[in-house]
Amino acid sequence: MTLAPTAPDLVQPFTVHVPQADLDDLTDRLARTRWPEAETAPGQGPALHRLRELVVHWTERYDWRRCEAELNSLGSSRTVVDGLGIHLLHVRSPEPAARPLLLCHGWPGSVLEFRKLIGPLTDPVAHGGRAEDAFHVVVPSMPGFGFSDKPTGPGWGVARTADAWIELMRRLGHSDWFAQGGDWGAAVVDAIGRRPGSGCAGLHVNLPLVFPTPEEVRDADPVERRMVERAQRYAADQDAYAREQATRPQTIGYSLLDSPVGLAAWILTVFDDVVDHDGDPLDVVGRDEFLDDVMMHWLPGTGASSARLYWEAQREQAAGAQGPGPTPIGFSVFPGEAVQASRRWVERRYRTVLHHALLERGGHFAAMEQPDLLVEEVRTTFRALRTA
C-alpha cells in the first residue's frame, strides 16, 4: 500500500484504509500456503496444527476492517520528523490537569499494543479511577513499523528514534511530559531520559534494561538467582529471532514479506516464549488481537524494515555503556519477562527510582496481557512527580 505524503512540521489526520485488493491477496496467499510436515518433537517452534487452526480463524472469522476502524477512532495522524513520515495515535484527556504521556512499543509490537490502556489513562473517571491520574496519550509507530515510513538508509536506531520522539512531543505542544515503554520502547525511553532539555520529567518501563555484573550474579539472593536463570534460559534457547534480525535482517525479511503464515509463525514463537500463559499465549492475548499485530506488519510490508532495528541497535550498543540514568524512573517486573531486575540492581544504575514492583502475573507484552495492572503501575510511578 502507498502512504500519502505528509507536509513537513504539520501533524495531520491520517485515515488508515487498506485497499481491498491487498486483503484479497492475503486470502489467496493463506489458501496457497505450502505447509511443512509436523514437528518431530516439542520445542521446535509453533506446532503445525496450531498454525493451521490460526489460519482457519484468519480466513473465516478475522475482520481487518474492525481493526482499521479502531485505529481511525484513536486520533490516527501522520507527521514528518527528521525526514521520515511517522504515524501516531494522539488521544487527549477530558481532564484539564492531565499530563502528556508518550507510550513506546517495540518489536513485534505496534501502536495497537496499548489500545486497552488508552481509555483508562486518558479518562480514568470513566474507568473507575481518579481524575488526578489522567494523561494525554501519544503513541507513535516506530520507524519502519506499521504505518510509519521505512528508513532508506542506516542510522535509525534507538538514539535517533529517541530524538525524534522528543521533537514529536514538542510539535504536539507538550513541554512537560512522561514516557513509558517495553521491549525496544524501554530502550528508547531510557535514551530519552538521558537527553538534557528533552522535557521528559519521568519514565516507566516494563522491561528493565539492567544486566547484572559477575559480582552481582555471585552475590544474588534467591529471587535474583531466578532472574539470572530466566535470562540465561532465554539467551540459550529462545532468542534466535533476535540474533537473526541483529545480523541478517534482510535475509529473514524476504520470508516475512512473502509468507503471511511464515510471518505469523515468526511472531507467535516470541509470544510462546515470553507471554505468561498456561500452554497457549493466545488464550491470554486473544486470536484477533494477535492477528491485528501480525497484520500491522503484513499489510504495510514491514518484515525487513522493523527487523533492522535489531541490526541498528547492536551497532549502537557497541559504543559502550552510559552512566547512571538521571531522570526519575519506575520499574514493573512481570514474571513472564525474559529480562528481569531487582530493586538493588536498578538503584545502582539510576539516580532516582520512583517505584519498583515484582508482579505476580503477566509477561513481556504487559499492555496486552495485563492492561489493568500496567495502568495502575504507570499511575503509581508518576503520582509522586505530579505533586512535586
Rank of each mutant, 00 (worst) to 15 (best):
S342R: 09
L172R: 05
R195A: 08
E95Y: 06
M169Y: 10
P108E: 08
W107M: 11
V284A: 07
G363C: 12
P19D: 13
R218L: 15
F135Q: 07
D293W: 03
E377C: 02
D239R: 07
R66S: 09
G253A: 03
V375N: 01
R248L: 09
V333K: 11
G193D: 07
A265T: 04
W184V: 07
I192P: 14
D24V: 13
I118W: 07
L74D: 00
D278I: 03
Q314A: 15
R344F: 10
P196N: 03
G185H: 10
A98W: 03
W177S: 01
S141K: 00
E113F: 02
A126C: 04
V189R: 02
D288Y: 01
F114H: 08
V188I: 15
W266P: 02
G85Y: 03
F331C: 09
H204W: 13
R230C: 13
R78D: 00
Q340H: 11
F145Q: 02
L30C: 06
A236V: 07
D372V: 11
P222G: 02
R308V: 01
P42K: 00
L10V: 08
A4S: 15
H364P: 04
I329R: 15
L48N: 07
L102R: 00
L121R: 06
G185N: 10
G146H: 01
V261I: 04
M296T: 06
D280Q: 07
T122V: 07
D239N: 15
F271T: 05
S255C: 12
L373P: 01
V158D: 10
T2F: 08
E376H: 01
H297N: 12
F211V: 13
T352I: 10
P120S: 11
R225T: 01
A69C: 13
R99Y: 02
A31N: 14
R351I: 07
E312R: 05
W58L: 09
L282C: 09
D273T: 04
R248F: 08
A7C: 02
M1T: 08
T302S: 12
F14Y: 15
V18N: 13
P196A: 00
W311T: 00
R115Y: 11
R308M: 06
P324N: 08
D278F: 02
D176S: 14
Y241E: 10
V111W: 11
G157K: 06
W107K: 05
R230M: 12
D221T: 05
H204E: 08
F334N: 09
T161R: 00
Y310E: 00
G109T: 06
G363W: 07
Y234G: 00
G144E: 06
L309K: 02
D28G: 08
R92T: 08
D280E: 08
W177P: 03
H136I: 02
D221G: 04
D9P: 03
L48W: 07
M296E: 00
H204V: 09
L88H: 06
A240K: 09
R29Q: 14
A191C: 06
Y254P: 10
W35Q: 00
V18D: 09
A318S: 13
E132H: 05
T15Y: 04
E167C: 11
L117Y: 04
G323L: 14
F290R: 05
Q317M: 15
L3H: 03
Q232R: 15
D258P: 00
Y241C: 11
V274W: 14
F365T: 05
W266E: 01
